[in-house]
């Protein structure tokens, strides 16, 4: 068991480190002169060389790359990603300010997506009509194929402008969360639902279900007591990985709905070429992603006794 935890923890750390390194290479090493990125392209030519020198020294760009890298890595370890070029605010501060808002959106969207997925899977398994079943099974792929910006704008049109049920933008209160939430949850629910529908069907035809029938269980009892847990286990992993999609999806959702959040922050940071901020966001988002998948990995043995047994035998997966 300790070996398993160490392994998964090591993987999480590796993911964050790799994200940091890739971001460093892309943002600080590859550009011809990273100092140029610090200025507005329009004014770049009018900046005097001394100022550039000064800036390069400030940011440490005149040091050898490896020294820069280690220096930044060292600072990143104590969560110091430097200051945002635009606002002068520490990067960590800028990210932490908006992170909760995105996390709430992403977490709520994930919960909603999982609920939708289970709803679809349960509906598909409980119906005995073939045409209805086929229709329900077609829903997930439909959900994936509609792009977020399109469904977001459609929802705004209908629920906000026509019906006036929900505000079209803003961060205030629960009501403003509803539309972005649904927009974000629907495409994410697609793959989870697809996996669940398939798992439910396979599990419903497995041997232990026959045993349960023979015990005198009813269909509902079998789905709840037997199928549910076995079918949901693999979906857990997908849900964890999907969290990455959610963060990516939030860039568009938050832009469409003009919400505060990591997505908006990233978008602004990229538009204004705020390099330290982009680097900081990449690392922090990677860290959140790694953390969530670490939690999923650690929950797994709790839910599946077979995996627990393998781990107890002293091995790794």
């Amino acid at each position: 068991m300790p070996r398993y935890i160490a392994l998964k923890l090591g993987r999480a750390v590796f993911v964050v480190w790799a994200a940091f390194t890739v971001a460093f290479v892309l943002l600080f090493v590859l550009p011809a002169d990273p100092v140029d990125l610090l200025f507005d392209p329009a004014e770049l030519n009018s900046v005097p060389p001394e100022v550039k020198e000064q800036m390069a020294a400030n940011y440490g760009f005149n040091e050898p790359v490896i020294v820069q890298y280690l220096d930044r890595l060292g600072h990143a370890l104590i969560l110091d990603f430097g200051n945002s070029v635009q606002s002068g605010q520490p990067v960590l501060r800028a990210v932490v300010d908006v992170l909760p808002s995105t996390l709430v959106l992403a977490a709520a969207a994930l919960v909603l997506a999982v609920l939708i997925a289970f709803g679809v899977a349960l509906a598909a398994t409980s119906t005995r009509r073939v045409w209805l079943r086929n229709l329900i099974e077609a829903l997930p792929s439909g959900a994936v194929s509609v792009p977020v910006f399109l469904s977001g704008i459609l929802m705004l049109q209908v629920f906000s402008f026509r019906l006036g049920w929900f505000p079209s933008f803003g961060d205030g209160g629960f009501r403003s969360l509803v539309l972005p939430l649904i927009t974000l949850a629907i495409p994410v629910s697609g793959p989870i639902a697809q996996l669940l529908v398939r798992n439910f069907t396979t599990e419903l035809h497995s041997g232990y279900v026959t045993t349960s029938w023979a015990k005198g269980s009813t269909r509902a009892g079998i789905v709840i007591r037997d199928v549910f847990r076995n079918a949901s286990l693999p979906a857990l992993t997908i849900a964890g990985i999907t969290f990455g999609n959610l963060i990516a999806g939030s860039v568009i959702t938050e832009t469409v709905f003009a919400r505060k959040g990591i997505g908006r922050l990233t978008q602004t940071a990229i538009n204004t070429l705020d390099v330290p901020l982009v680097a900081g966001i990449v690392v922090l988002v990677a860290a959140t992603f790694a953390l969530i998948n670490l939690i999923v990995d650690l929950i797994y043995p709790v839910l599946d006794p077979r995996l627990r047994a393998t781990l107890a035998a002293g091995g790794s997966r």
């Binding site: 041997g207 232990y208 029938w213 023979a214 005198g216 847990r229 076995n230 839910l303 006794p305 077979r306």
Partner: peptide
């Protein structure tokens, strides 16, 4: 039928390796 199964007629399935709920 659910009241007949288990109660009146017991069933032993074919493959013991897949016929028990693994979790």
């Amino acid at each position: 039928m659910a009241l007949v199964r288990g109660n009146y007629v017991g069933f032993i399935p074919q493959d013991p390796n897949t016929s028990l709920n693994p979790v």
